[in-house]
Design a protein around this nucleic acid. Sequence first.
DNA 1: GCCTGAATGTTCGTGTCACTAACGTTTACC
DNA 2: GGTAAACGTTAGTGACACGAACATTCAGGC
Lengths: 161, 161
Amino acid sequence: MQNPPQTPPEHPAARWERTPSWLLNQTAHHAQRLVADGFSSLNARGYHYRLLATLHDSGPASQAELGRRSGIHVSDMVATVNELTEAALVERTPDPADRRRNIISLTTEGQHRLRRLEEQLAATQDTLLAPLSPDERAHLTDLLATVLDHHEQHTRTRPPH
Amino acid sequence: MQNPPQTPPEHPAARWERTPSWLLNQTAHHAQRLVADGFSSLNARGYHYRLLATLHDSGPASQAELGRRSGIHVSDMVATVNELTEAALVERTPDPADRRRNIISLTTEGQHRLRRLEEQLAATQDTLLAPLSPDERAHLTDLLATVLDHHEQHTRTRPPH
DNA sequence: GCCTGAATGTTCGTGTCACTAACGTTTACC
DNA sequence: GGTAAACGTTAGTGACACGAACATTCAGGC
């Protein structure tokens, strides 16, 4: 049901198909599928990468803190840490200074895996933006960032931690 | 991305936060939330709008055909039609010419509801793109459409019929 | 020091979108 | 007439994002 230029009669592309939110969601869906496919070839999914990257960027932390940094919900964090622990990519150690907390840290294996996921992700970006020139890619990124930033500031009345 | 001068200090934005696929997904997520919120104030969700709009655009059809036109999976179509039927926005009539099929058609109420959803959606677009100028909005739409078209043609090598 | 209130980790459940598998019925093709 | 396809339906999965509840542990006010 694609609408090639020569689609004459019936469906000249419904109006919602040119709606920014629709374009955004559809494009994001394609992007997500590309990313997910790339990740799943390494037995990972989005949350895994996000957690590993967050750990690599700002070091070991409690699950709650990691949730804040990565944007992963605390309850999803549990499962994510479980999975990564089972794969030995991450370590869960009780915090001696605060017995409520677990300290999550990257293992060496985890760092390796992160690197491979990152390569995968970079390759995916290229596939995703294939039809755009470098200038267009930059412009798209800028526009998206502007929109995103705007809405994050409007929804995130986040208390400093 | 934007490093607005006032970028919060703590986390200098992990690298995945500048990745096109990330920006796309996050922005789409905000968009989807805006849309969903707007729709849910009218007791609807995305599939409802898509089905109503598809019906309005290309007229009554079987569920399978509507699935093809709207991109809604056949099995989800069942639930969507159920819900809309229950709300009397749509009618499900057995096709006398083909007893496998149901013919789904818009009711008058359904047309009204569609109009209200459309108004909602239009308002949401404006909220979504608030930080962009008209030119920027058009450019963003174009870029997204380009990417989307490219990937739709690449993934949809679907046999027609 | 005690008590209250907050934070933490955890389990369970919800919602949306997308998609797969299976099944019975009905139609179409050869 | 028999096989293959299409149709509608049910049920289930997966990813992502949230909410509610709960027990344990810590921290601040008094």
